[in-house]
Design a protein around this nucleic acid. Sequence first.
DNA 1: ATGAAAGCGCTAACAA
DNA 2: TTGTTAGCGCTTTCAT
Lengths: 334, 334
Amino acid sequence: MNRQAPTLEDVAREAGVSRATVSRVVNGVRNVDPDIQELVRHAIERTGCTPNRAARSLVTRRAETVALIVSGAGDAFAARVFVDPFFGRVVSGALGYLRARAMHPVLLFAESQAARKQVVDYVRQGSADGVLVVSILADDPLPEMLLSARIPTVLFARPGRMAPISCVDLDHYAGGELTGAHLLARGCRHITAISAPSELQAGQDRLTGFRDALARAGRRPPPVVEGTFTLDSGAAAMTTLLRDHPRVDGVFAANDLMAQGACQVLRELGKRVPEDVAVVGFDDSSVAVPAHARPSAGAAPALRAAGQACACRWPRMMSAYRCPLDLIVRVWVG
Amino acid sequence: MNRQAPTLEDVAREAGVSRATVSRVVNGVRNVDPDIQELVRHAIERTGCTPNRAARSLVTRRAETVALIVSGAGDAFAARVFVDPFFGRVVSGALGYLRARAMHPVLLFAESQAARKQVVDYVRQGSADGVLVVSILADDPLPEMLLSARIPTVLFARPGRMAPISCVDLDHYAGGELTGAHLLARGCRHITAISAPSELQAGQDRLTGFRDALARAGRRPPPVVEGTFTLDSGAAAMTTLLRDHPRVDGVFAANDLMAQGACQVLRELGKRVPEDVAVVGFDDSSVAVPAHARPSAGAAPALRAAGQACACRWPRMMSAYRCPLDLIVRVWVG
DNA sequence: ATGAAAGCGCTAACAA
DNA sequence: TTGTTAGCGCTTTCAT
């Protein structure tokens, strides 16, 4: 019942060697006689020893662990992070990377200033070697805090202020350009937009890219109604746009949910989508694209880079990847 | 640059006391002079010391960590766990419980036998004090492995074989009964069912509960077509049912996704739902219920119990909770 | 190639 | 109430 877990010392006794030798075998250090290696391995097998992690961590000063921080939301919203078309892929890619290296992700939530401090402390205790931050806040203070605590960090999203932090993010501007090009290519003449809440930088970037694409084609700035990223706000915005611009034949919505709302309103009013009015969203979410067509591993290269950064190696690089469905991911390594 | 993190020893020197006293203050042990407490706290503040976790863990033999194991699926499917109407609530409830106790969840995936062994080793290394298993496998070997390794475990779902393991699960049978009662109460005369894949115990339980409810009302066994939990299979099953039983006016689908597929087929064929044909699903997922009506914290009491078990206390209890929308959760503590 | 021994930073039993 | 001391189990020089 109260039997302690076998230690390397037990194995050493069993094998008739020293603790140091057992440690060498366990850690794959060379300079160990193959016969003795075999001996030790058997002894480990027999005793069922699993080297204590805390003891190892204490001396190596590595936890073999990274903190996966969901910043700006409590655990009730953890789901979002895993379902979000961008975060979901990025997170599961990162998890796969960690797993291949026997590193473990600890889930932390940083929705308040106190929680943010706790997160920093957690790492400073040596509980994690670095952090991955998934942030949904426009101007999150956490990245700066991690930076000044000299904690190896990779941010999924871009920091509000310019900071020397590695990050992975969608290229919102380029995505916006694509949507503009798409509507132009379809031959739309009366193009409008449903924008994101104005305080979200990402939303602004999408809109700017969209506008620029139209401008380069010689079009005048499109009418824009601001939405709140919800289905209902998309429907409301579409209603407004139709009232003010009855001839509209192309709509850019800053996310898929609003695009969906817009489609509903259009169809209710007897418009065919996309024959009468073309609607393009943003997010590559499941409402927009048939499942079999989605690029499930699209963000892999970006993640590999991010993963490397997490592993506390910091290669100098900057690159962009383009996925099958034009999901554009950029990686900055600071 | 290479400056080490300050230790309790540093704080002790700074405060002019012994390391033990600092430890006592940090751990909130009483019997420490208030003045000295103040002194020590200031010293901690000044030095910015964060007590090393590995060192503490080494001597206390506690990691203050639990493993959150997703069994039967790789990280690509992690999303499911957080989105699933049952698992999602249960997991976020458990996370909240842990957080309030400054315990940390490590995310592990056990989709292969090798991965399962790694999970067991991870805990035996002392990296976690216990595990929460979210299993989607019908007959998962992991619970038994954890049991025989004497690892404190709470299973979300029920073990395939009867085993003395604490678990939290929906009461599928009772849920099935409810759906049957619902269709009967609506006055349906020609009731049919779209069942779950036969290898899933939970699905069988739902169906059995449903059948028993009908039987108790004196109805003969309903026609059943087996589905695969997908939208398409629900649609296909509904098509079959309508062909063989044109007068059908009530349908039980073993999950909401199939119910949705059934609704689509019915509407395409000009049937009104629920006026002509009543359809009831299972899962309390967002497709079925308006968001504002969902019991977001419905599983809280069950979780509290589960959380207590996780925390390695094992109160003898067995209870059932009924949520606003008849989500029934049972807790077994083994 | 192997062993002896020091010590990582902390807690806890024992002394004072 | 406080300090002294002995480990926790491991890695890692330094001898051999």
